[in-house]
């Protein structure tokens, strides 16, 4: 606010100008007055369906996002940085697989892992290791593996294939970053300015800040996914399924577009019965690592320069490993 920069004496001389708080109030009043007009726009079945899907994605993801920001705030406020240096091997080449395997213990979906990985980096964890964790945590945690097992009752090897392909993709991505990544591509979230009077105060400030940040990007992702969901004709899927290679790439792209939580994607994959098991494996490996809402959240937290390089590379590596593991275990 202007009072912080110019002091109260100068403030008194200035004429009144609306700040964000006033805009918010004016906006809310305008919305209330224009409600019937807004509702009439939403009367179209397509718009209505899109709006329902949009709200559904946000509502479904919200508890996981809250869990994620609480966890990342707890890391920032209560865990001393030295813990991470002790827990991970000094050698970064070794730290990557250790961090990737550590993804097994965080029962969260991908919305939770973006802020957690951000706060790990802010606490001095090497970006390569934090990125391996970012990719593996939503894909290989016990909840996701159990749901995959339940969704494919006839194919228990699907769960194993998912575990192997996801872990391998996250480790390879960590090593690729170690070898080729440049420091200027990534903006490591700084937390130093969010220090409160006490650990609890820091915890609370960090949680609120992270929620507002990641939540905004979740909205962009949810909105995009909802629009595309309503726009793409379902018949396209049947045509894509007919060609084996196209089916794999097609389902991988579908995973990016649909942006479903990793806890639920196995059930969606199971329902796509016209596709090969390998194509569905690609859907399960790509989805938790890279989708529209994640690209949006990652570019928000680590910067756009990071996201334009990291997202396509992850996509290619994940698809290649799905083909490899699928050929090995699923045929």
């Amino acid at each position: 606010m202007t009072t912080d920069e110019h002091g109260p004496t100068q403030f008194a001389q200035r004429s009144w100008r609306p700040g964000p708080l006033e805009y918010l109030a004016i906006g809310l009043v305008a919305l209330l007055l224009g409600q019937s007009w807004l509702v009439s726009i939403f009367d179209q079945p397509a718009v209505q369906t899109g709006a329902t899907i949009f709200v559904a994605i946000i509502v479904q993801a919200l508890p996981f996002l809250v869990l994620g920001v609480l966890l990342s705030a707890a890391i920032a406020a209560f865990v001393p940085p030295s813990v991470w240096q002790k827990a991970l091997p000094k050698n970064q080449v070794l730290a990557v697989p250790v961090a990737g395997a550590a993804g097994f213990v965080l029962p969260g979906c991908e919305c939770a892992s973006v802020p957690v990985a951000g706060s790990l980096m802010a606490r001095g964890v090497a970006p390569a290791a934090a990125l391996a964790f970012l990719l593996s945590a939503p894909a290989i945690n016990p909840i996701v593996l159990v749901s995959t097992f339940v969704a494919f009752p006839g194919n228990p090897q699907m769960m194993v294939a998912r575990l192997i392909a996801s872990l391998a993709t996250s480790i390879i991505m960590g090593w690729l970053w170690l070898r080729f990544g440049k420091a200027e591509w990534i903006r490591i979230p700084r937390r130093d300015h969010l220090v409160g009077d006490s650990n609890w105060h820091t915890f609370r400030l960090t949680a609120a800040h992270d929620f507002l940040h990641a939540g905004g990007f979740l909205v962009i992702g949810g909105l995009t996914a909802a629009v595309i969901n309503v726009v793409i004709p379902q018949e396209w899927l049947a045509n894509v399924a007919a060609n084996p290679l196209l089916a794999i790439v097609g389902l991988a792209l579908l995973a990016v577009i649909l942006s479903i939580c990793s806890e639920a994607d196995a059930f969606v994959a199971a329902s796509l019965t016209q596709f090969s098991l390998t194509a569905r494996l690609a859907f399960l490996v790509v989805g938790p690592m890279i989708d529209l809402k994640l690209i949006s959240m990652q570019s928000g937290i680590f910067g756009r320069k990071f996201a334009v390089r990291f997202a396509p590379t992850t996509f290619v590596v994940a698809v290649l490993l799905s083909i490899l593991v699928g050929w090995w275990l699923l045929t």
Binding site: L32, L38, A51, F54, V55, H209, G215, G216, F217, L223
Partner: peptide, 21 residues
Amino acid sequence: APGIAWLLLLPVVTIFIVAPP
């Protein structure tokens, strides 16, 4: 606070005012 947080008002408005069925 990031300006992107304004977008969080979008689902709020959709829920409170439009209430999609």
